[in-house]
Computed example of a mutant assay.
Amino acid sequence: MSALDEALHIDIPVKLSRLKVVFSIGALGFEGDLPASIFHLQLITNDAADWNAESDVVAVFHTNAGHLTLHDAAYNADRNISTGNPYKDLLEDLMKRGVRVELCGATAKAHHWGNTDLLPGIPVNTDAMARTVQLVQEGFIKITE
């Protein structure tokens, strides 16, 4: 048993059988160098797997976080760098695990991004606000990142 296991007692254990969550990700806060939104998506995805829960998790990237959905060349052009998208592997892993990652169409238009600028498998919605409202009306819980 680790020192943390000995020092931490969970007073309110949570185990859900079903999750319907939409993350509205318009800006990036960080846990070290990792965007907190990605950390939180990983956390809830891991929880759902541990609980063997039915889950539907949608991440809508928009505004100042939309660039995370770009492939390397488009990311480089948008961010004026040459390192490629450092978050692509994390997003691709989340998508493989069932998270639906989307880009706001209004954000894409404002930045002159086309569908071919995106990582494979990322669809574009009309706009983040309309999509979030739609999902909330369908029973999703909204988390703002």
Rank of each mutant, 00 (worst) to 15 (best):
N76I: 05
N76W: 07
A77L: 13
A77D: 08
A77H: 11
A77F: 12
A77R: 13
D78F: 11
D78K: 13
D78R: 10
R79F: 02
R79E: 05
R79V: 02
N80R: 11
N80D: 10
I81W: 00
I81C: 10
I81R: 05
I81Q: 07
I81D: 07
S82K: 15
S82I: 04
S82T: 15
S82A: 14
T83P: 06
T83R: 11
T83E: 13
T83A: 13
T83S: 15
T83V: 10
G84Y: 13
G84V: 14
G84L: 12
N85S: 07
N85Y: 14
N85D: 15
P86E: 09
P86L: 14
Y87H: 13
Y87M: 04
Y87V: 06
K88Q: 15
K88F: 08
K88P: 03
D89C: 06
D89L: 11
D89E: 14
L90D: 14
L90Q: 09
L90R: 09
L90F: 09
L90G: 06
L91P: 02
L91F: 12
L91D: 02
E92F: 09
E92H: 04
E92T: 15
D93R: 05
D93Q: 09
D93V: 04
L94C: 02
M95L: 06
M95Q: 13
K96H: 06
K96E: 07
R97Q: 11
R97G: 04
R97N: 07
R97F: 10
G98V: 05
G98H: 08
G98L: 07
G98D: 12
V99K: 06
V99S: 01
V99N: 03
V99E: 04
V99M: 09
R100Y: 08
R100P: 00
R100S: 05
R100D: 15
V101S: 14
V101I: 14
E102S: 00
E102W: 02
L103P: 00
L103N: 02
L103R: 12
C104R: 01
G105R: 04
G105V: 06
G105T: 03
G105F: 00
A106E: 00
A106T: 03
A106S: 01
A106L: 10
A106H: 01
A106N: 00
T107H: 03
T107F: 00
T107Q: 00
